[in-house]
Design a protein around this nucleic acid. Sequence first.
RNA 1: CGGGGUGUAGCGUAGCCCGGUAUCGCGCUUGGUUUGGGACCAAGAGGUCGUCAGUUCGAAUCUGGCCACCCCGACCA
Length: 492
Amino acid sequence: MGKEITSRADDYSQWYIDLVKKADLAENSDVRGCMVIKPYGYSIWEKMQQALDKMFKETGHVNAYFPLFVPKSLFEAEEKNAEGFAKECAIVTHYRLKTDPARPGKLMVDPEAKLEEELVVRPTSEAIIWSTYKKWIQSYRDLPLLINQWANVVRWEMRTRLFLRTAEFLWQEGHTAHATSAEAITETKQMLDVYAEFAETFMAMPVIKGKKSEGERFPGAVDTYCIEAMMQDGKALQAGTSHFLGQNFADAFGVQFTNKEGKLEKVWGTSWGVSTRLIGGLIMAHSDDDGLILPPKLAPIHVVIIPIFKSEEELNRVSAKAESIAKELRGLGLSVKFDDRDNLKPGFKFAEYELKGVPVRIAIGPRDLDNGTVEVARRDTKEKKVMQMDSVVSEISQLLEDIQQNIYQKALKFRNEKITRVDSYDELKKVLDEKGGFVSAHWDGTAETETKIKEETKATIRCIPLDAELKEGKCVFSGKPSSQRVLFARAY
RNA sequence: CGGGGUGUAGCGUAGCCCGGUAUCGCGCUUGGUUUGGGACCAAGAGGUCGUCAGUUCGAAUCUGGCCACCCCGACCA
């Protein structure tokens, strides 16, 4: 009956798709590769935005907005960056339609209205932003420039998956300019820490901070740092990136400043971003076969109250109590929904809010009114508890906090169990095939080895962990010396 | 973009081989009975069978092009 979800064991990808669609997060649109983010899904994004935006502001950043379109000549100025994205760019070539003389009532591109210069729809905004920064930066007193923008970007992907990879997606991109290399590197790492803290504190999703290998690095960056998360199917998900751009974009766009000694110097840059992909990660990190499990800190609805009644008279009595509890909970800053629809049975509603991942459910019926109690159920463990009506409001905040902690601990335990140390190539392949997850192994640091391993196992180097111990070893593939272990995994 | 599959009402489907304008379930509407884990009865509404063309007296059904989605590769956040 109702909304059946494919189980994770049967078909993990289908389970994911079922969840996204049936929990009303998003759906495919009439535009190839683009999704419609539905209100429930978008409100999760809004929660993420609010938390991140606050953290960006607290670290001194301000928001601005740059254009969607990038003139091709600007786009190609930083060659590596341009080449990296060239294969997946949408391009605007014309600025006008006209009625088609051959097909009445239809429109055609007006060949007379060709643009002098094509416009690239931004796959990322470094080019347009650095060409602007050139005008804004003259002196060391103009630095650092710490700007973020919330925007959509377009990357023409061949194969798309809701939230995880779509042709258009929403994100934020921070772009900062600094007087020194050290300051830019500090900024890069600071923002990586911000992302890690957000992932763990708000999303309840443990992440590993690391540096990308040369092969996985952002085109145009000197160093790319990332946070990597582990999904329940044993595949890794890159959840955020922070790039140290060196002077690459300053070079490309001629961004210089006069230092205290009156000499011209080139500016140092960073960029960093997270996207709506995080919503995909959130789903795959916690949810189960009954539906979403949302961390309270990002849940659009914290508490749903479901009345149980036989008659309209009973509904009225139950509603009065429910409304007063809802009001008190809202007073604590919680988002509360009272679902008094009379055409659905309570059991149906229970299942529906479980599907949508609402962390706490309160049921109130006539029996509770007599006993002065309510039934409280938590989504993460499915536990039900009868609580005294007088104390329920004061207990809910703690319960939400417990849920937040519990799902983080559960995800952490799972993630840690999915890290396997290996010392041979056979073991590496065996673990990837049989267990999945991160495989910690020595690597000789060469792109050749990385490529070969990728070709043979489909696993990539997710990152060189930042907090790993530096211990000498031998590369599992080539046997050459290695200074530390790196994490391999198959990834989204 | 290469290989495979699917497309019939909001959703899931039968019919297709063997041409004669469509089946069932869920959902929806109305009325009634229900309501502590996915209610039931009755009456109703809803479909250019993905799309365009071809074959035919006649196409959901046969043929071809195109589009979308799913799975597996290549590419990627």
